[in-house]
Amino acid sequence: MARFGMVIDTKKCVGCQDCVIACKTENKVPEGHDRDWIVTESHGKFPDILMEIRTERCNHCSNTPCVSCCPTGASHIHDVGGVVLVNHDLCIGCKACVESCPYDARFIHPDGYADKCTFCIHRVEKGLKPACVEVCPTYCMHFGDLDDPNSEVSKLLQSRKYHVNLPEAGTQPNIFYLI
């Protein structure tokens, strides 16, 4: 079975938020909420500074506290690509998943359900890339099947150094940051 993931090149990302806006228009994310966001981390004393810019979202983890804690089964793992999704009809908006996510990737949609990145599964299932990947003017984002050793994402992970966010959380995230 495929395991969808993203590989994001922090060397190329300029933090322009195009991915955030593309997600908002593609998925009609309500004003005041985002499914993805930019993090800029800098260290050091001027002018000797190291800086990493990266775009973040739900990590579509392989070990999912948000699914385990869901009392209704709304939070689930999709049968395509292991994508973590929320069934809006089953969700009661109890916020257990919002609290359980170490990445703070979820929010309660004004319509009452937990919402977050879907890896644009509606696009992916039609053979398109997620909207954020498709729009990125720096071409820093890559999407594909991590279980396929010949996929672009797998090859990037074989050839470059990378990190994941909060590895200590034990969630086995499926978004990797090239450094």
Partner: peptide
């Protein structure tokens, strides 16, 4: 690929 402003043109 548009820039963020272009994507936000809507």
């Amino acid at each position: 690929r548009l820039c963020p402003r272009g994507t936000g043109g809507v």
